[in-house]
């Protein structure tokens, strides 16, 4: 349970960054940190004490219990999609920097139009 709470603290750190920072790159970093905490949470839910990696070598029925493969497969998909969204965000940040010469959200808002 402590680990779940620490995971949630990591998530809160990311949310705090998204809400309070005015630098576009910092906002992207905070979003990435939020994503990381979610991946870790999902991987933790599927863990079984003393379990082994879900790879069956040779025999079909393993000696020790394997950890849950379902959350791991979902996290794998989520990581790749997070990469795609990150690349989009950074590209938009580059375009904004080239147009306005700053990463500051307030200045970009003022110079609009």
């Amino acid at each position: 349970m402590t680990l779940f709470i620490m995971c949630f603290l990591l998530f809160l750190t990311g949310i705090y960054g998204v809400l309070t920072r005015r630098n576009l790159i910092k906002v992207v970093i905070s979003l990435t940190i939020m994503e990381f905490s979610l991946f870790l949470m999902l991987a933790m839910i599927g863990y079984i004490s003393g379990g082994e990696a879900p790879i069956l070598a040779g025999t079909i029925i393993p000696a020790a219990p394997v950890v849950d493969p379902l959350p791991q497969a979902m996290v794998l998909t989520a990581i790749v999609i997070a990469l795609a969204t990150n690349a989009m965000l950074l590209t938009i940040a580059i375009r904004l920097y080239k147009k306005y010469g700053t990463f500051d959200i307030r200045e970009i808002n003022e110079l609009k139009g």
Binding site: T32, I33, F39, Y47, A53, P54, V67, Q72
Partner: peptide, 17 residues
């Protein structure tokens, strides 16, 4: 943070992710 996450995944027996 990202590479620490890799170590966490390895400890959680998730080599693929």
């Amino acid at each position: 943070v990202g590479y620490g996450l890799v170590i966490c995944f390895l400890l959680l027996r998730a080599p693929d992710i």
